[in-house]
Design a protein around this nucleic acid. Structure first.
Lengths: 234, 234
DNA sequence: TGTACATCAGTGAACGCGCGTTCACTGATGTAC
DNA sequence: TGTACATCAGTGAACGCGCGTTCACTGATGTAC
């Protein structure tokens, strides 16, 4: 019979504090500089105590990656859900804009997810993938759902069917047709590229000026996904 | 009067060996893992000896960054120079393709230049910029030189003139007009985004399948820079 | 050409640091009777 | 309800490691006369 459950409750609390503290550390020193000892110090515990909760530094990183993906996923899904279903272009813009917002607000998390890989660490795909594909899944759903035909930009010549199938499988959207797939991947790539060049300061420091570039990337993505249209992005 | 010049010669040799060894280390462990001691070990010298040649770890990184930019610059400039001057689209494709080639061949160097910043290190702009802008300078020259009017894609609404001027100054092409500038930056961003998503494995592991995506990115860039055309990229 | 001195490249020991992880321990929480 | 034992969270010392950097030193290279 359960008398109090003190232990169980405490376990949950420590787990939560551990994650929260690790996130704070990540935001301050970045992924490469993250250390178990620093987290323990910040929590006021002995470093060895944390090994009761995590198996080592790698698991700490995995925890942070999954958490960051989920945080991003929550943010983007909420923004997308707020747009009327029929406004597919608006939904794309909501995805892109909220992705950008979150990234600017959480630069170290962004670097962890979309920057260069952390040395000596390889994320376990089985724990990372479900959360890591939430945003792209949203995009894929949008692409599949849109009733109007894909833009078929004249300058894009499609590769042969077998290559396309390979790519569709790798991107985890096996039933998507070629034009949509390529257009969607290009839109996504452009989005990530624009955010990266802003956050990683590849075009000089002043972030504000790059808003212009980001807006253009969103417009380009919209055109890639849905073709030309009278309506222009806000 | 100079009797032998042994010292001077030796100094040059050690400098060269230092850079070569540091590059080898970079290729093996990446920027974040690079250490002065490891380089000294590899060179068969005492760690303290290297302080006669560099001021510390930061300068080692700066050296590597400049060298990588120059290596990349040489490669891309050579590829671009091999295309007839009149074939502006072919020159763009040469830039993009050779950029991709170099990046795949030198992933850690690429990460150093275009990935997340190395923690605790900030590159001195005065030493980094000249080499770091070689590729984009090539692109800018191409854009300015092209006699045909810019594409003015209908979906891109231009921001106001003052923002454009700011952006043009930040990108170091003050005399470039708005459409060209935005189109060029988008093409560049898309290129970097495509290479990053390939090298940083953001779309599953199998690199080969992403060739398809990269080819599409090159085609998109060409269209952004020069508009629609009968000729399609190879 | 030869000698006395100055310069400077490289050594090796040492500094203090922070790291990840292990391990025997203690004291509190939980359980069986 | 009370006692005897089992579980388990957290401690603190210790391990071995590699790091960047300093510093007094040595021996070879260069220079002035």
């Amino acid at each position: 019979m359960r008398t109090s459950g003190t232990r169980e409750r405490r376990r949950g609390e420590v787990n939560a504090a551990l994650l929260a503290t690790a996130k704070k550390e990540l935001a301050q020193v970045g992924a490469a500089g993250l250390s178990v000892r620093a987290v323990a110090r910040e929590m006021g515990m002995a470093p060895s105590a944390l090994f009761r909760y995590i198996s080592g530094r790698d698991e700490l990183l995995t925890l942070l990656i999954v958490d960051a993906y989920d945080d991003l996923g929550d943010h983007v899904e909420a923004a997308e859900a707020a747009v009327p279903r029929s406004d597919v272009r608006g939904r794309w813009r909501a995805i892109a804009t909220s992705f950008h917002e979150w990234s600017v607000a959480n630069p170290h998390e962004y670097a962890l997810l979309y920057g260069s890989p952390v040395p000596q660490y390889h994320a376990p795909a089985d724990r990372t993938t479900p959360s890591g594909t939430r945003v792209t899944t949203l995009l894929a759903a949008l692409g599949m759902e849109d009733p109007t035909p894909p833009p078929r930009p004249a300058f894009l010549h499609l590769p042969d069917a077998s290559q396309l199938r390979d790519l569709a499988l790798a991107a985890d959207v096996p039933e998507m047709e070629g034009e949509r797939l390529i257009s969607g991947l290009l839109a996504w790539t452009t989005l990530v590229g624009a955010v990266s060049s802003e956050l990683f300061e590849q075009l000089g420091e002043p972030v504000a000026r790059l808003d212009t570039l980001f807006a253009a990337a969103v417009a380009l993505g919209e055109w890639l996904l849905f073709g030309a249209d009278g309506r222009l992005p806000a």
